[in-house]
Design a protein around this nucleic acid. Structure first.
Lengths: 151, 151
DNA sequence: AATCGACGGTTACAATTGCAACCAATTCGA
DNA sequence: TCGAATTGGTTGCAATTGTAACCGTCGATT
């Protein structure tokens, strides 16, 4: 007799459900106000938070497919929130950077994000979010380590 | 001077990244072998784990959009993994149930899922996954409670 | 019992997405 | 040093997805 399978305690299922819920919940805060999509916000956030990066690095950082990143970058460029700069040594590479306008937008949406998370932390209690994130870090590390070995 | 915003500790971003990573990682286990999509697996899992449910209930349980559920149900029905049964009292409602074939498929994929999670728990240490899930449950509860009040 | 709003579920259509193929540039290896 | 394999990034196309509109049914109000 096999061990029972409880979907409610299956991590991929649980993570998906929670991620979808919280993402949509927060997206409501900026979708209307800034006319920006989810991939665009993630790209903006990555560049604003980390600083100058290439498209590939943005993709790794936020775990987005490279075509998704490519399109988000294009959209942000149209909006003049982002500038591309070529690399001196390798002409395939494009360094991405937020424009002054982009930085302004980033700061504003980041303020929304901060407020959102602060409010959540209020109701969850101090440190609760940090503990989840520590757990997630371990999970990601385990998965990425496993992937390299071809599991 | 505003508090700094660190994307790495922003919960929606972190949850999305982790969820995407683990979902794709596990999807590799069944996509090939069973020719089944992510929404189909989630629906199968919900019905297999919880038992007879309506489409709406499946959607709530797995936090999937109702059209996604509708299409997944249709696909599973084509495959003869699922049966519909009308409700005696309310003719709008359809009760969904796995067929014998569907139950068999569910048991097989559930076994994969169990193995997957066990292996993960091995590397993370006993109880690590449970702690994350407890945290997620709190988050979900907070968000759903907030949504009802119109936040 | 007729009307209106809500509900469960499906579908048409448009937008978003991922895969695969591609281009240009670079690195590797014989 | 030349060709093959690899890399950063884009694009065409097909598949997936969400929005909105819809159908049939139900419940409440009158």
């Amino acid at each position: 007799m096999p061990a029972p399978f409880d979907l409610e305690s299956f991590l991929p299922y649980r993570l998906n459900r929670a991620a979808e819920l919280i993402s949509l919940s927060f997206a409501r805060e900026y979708k209307q106000r800034y006319q920006i999509t989810r991939p665009e916000w993630r790209t903006l956030a990555a560049l604003g938070s980390v600083g100058r990066m290439t498209a590939t690095q943005v993709g790794v950082h936020s775990n987005m497919h490279k075509t998704k990143v490519s399109r988000a970058v294009h959209a942000l460029e149209q909006r003049r929130w982002l500038k591309r700069a070529e690399d001196d040594a390798d002409r395939r590479i494009e360094h991405l950077e937020l424009s002054v306008l982009g930085q302004k937008a980033y700061r504003e949406i980041a303020a929304l994000a901060r407020a959102y998370q602060e409010s959540l932390e209020q109701t969850l209690g101090q440190g609760a979010i940090g503990r989840i994130e520590a757990g997630l870090a371990d999970v990601e590390q385990a998965l990425l380590a496993g992937a390299r070995k071809g599991h």
